[in-house]
């Protein structure tokens, strides 16, 4: 686990690669191309890049029009404005029409840091997964972000891809098998399952190491595709370990925890605990400080496991 990389960096890099493979790939942004990392695609393929200005509603409305004309569209802005401000446009113009738009939303969650509460979204997974037919992806590191983006672009239909601002450890190696719609068991374990998504997967691995020292054998599962969710791996975890802790950089209402609970309650009810943003807004601070203050660290996962 040597290098660190933000998932948005992996996104920007992969886009340029995909631009060569798909001549119908169009990238759009809303005046944040240096932050979302779409700028390099823009300078490489200027004819297929549109900066739509600070107008997220029209970003996604136009993206729908381009996609319905045969383009594969990756349209980026911050997660707050994509999922929040443009929600109804995404729902009606992209979801309802099954338009081939990849909503690649960066700067999700608390690790936006210093920008503060107005820019820290904890609602996007919940909102996006309620849209019929929407695939919801939340990569956990740079390697999986690249691999998942590639698969999202290869599939036909709307996807929400959640990306982060902060550099996070790269823990998958380049040959890792990452399949859209399939969870990844990143650590064996029989006493409890920690089911995590996004940057919380790394925290979950650290938590499992800490728990091991206390004699608790924790399984860690990376759910990078929240919709459609891998029911099989979740049900298996519930049956084999009897307890589940979910961990996400998102509200505990409506996100991964809720999605896992929906699967567990139907198939194999077990006790669960939820690590994530409580029902509250964030604030300005350094990402690591905020993760600690708002309860999204390995230590919080350890405490949750021990509470069960």
């Amino acid at each position: 686990m040597a290098d660190k990389m933000a998932t948005r960096q992996a996104y920007g890099k992969k886009l340029v690669e995909l631009g060569e493979k798909y001549d119908n790939l169009v990238v759009m942004d809303a005046d944040l191309s240096k932050s979302t990392m779409t700028a390099e695609f823009g300078s490489t393929y200027p004819q297929r890049f549109f900066n739509m200005g600070i107008a997220e509603q029209n970003l996604y409305g136009s993206a729908a029009g381009l996609a319905l004309s045969g383009k594969i569209v990756c349209a980026s802005t911050f997660a707050m404005f994509a999922s929040g401000r443009a929600f109804e446009i995404i729902r009606n113009s992209i979801g309802y029409t099954k338009a081939n738009v990849k909503i690649c939303a960066t700067h999700a969650g608390i690790t936006v840091g210093e920008d503060g509460a107005s820019h820290q979204t904890f609602e996007d997974i919940a909102l996006m997964r309620t849209i019929p037919g929407m695939t919801v992806i939340n990569p956990s590191d740079g390697v999986s972000a690249g691999k998942l983006l590639e698969q999202a672009v290869a599939m036909d239909g709307p996807c929400y891809v959640r990306l982060g601002r902060a550099a996070v450890p790269v823990f998958y190696d380049e040959n890792a098998q990452i399949t859209l719609g399939k969870g990844n068991q990143v650590r064996e374990g029989k006493d409890v399952s920690i089911i995590a998504t996004g940057i919380m997967v790394n925290e979950a691995v650290m938590a499992a190491e800490e728990l091991a020292a206390d004699g608790i054998d924790a399984r860690v599962i990376d759910i990078h595709t929240i919709k459609p969710i891998d029911e099989e791996i979740i049900v298996k975890a519930a049956r084999e370990t009897g307890k589940i802790v979910t961990a996400e950089e998102h509200s505990v209402i409506g996100g991964l925890g809720s999605a896992v609970a929906e699967v567990v309650v139907k198939n194999a009810p077990v006790k669960m605990a939820f690590v994530g943003q409580k029902d509250t807004y964030g604030e300005s601070g350094k990402p690591e400080e905020l993760k600690k203050k708002y309860g999204m660290t390995a230590a919080d996962i350890v405490a949750a496991v021990k509470s069960l």
């Binding site: 409305g61 136009s62 729908a64 309802y96």
Partner: peptide, 20 residues
């Protein structure tokens, strides 16, 4: 060519089609 009903969105999508 486009599912409409929520006002303003057809206009926005039409712009996207013209861009394409």
């Amino acid at each position: 060519e486009m599912s409409t009903g929520s006002l303003g969105q057809g206009f926005s999508a039409a712009g996207g089609m013209a861009m394409a």
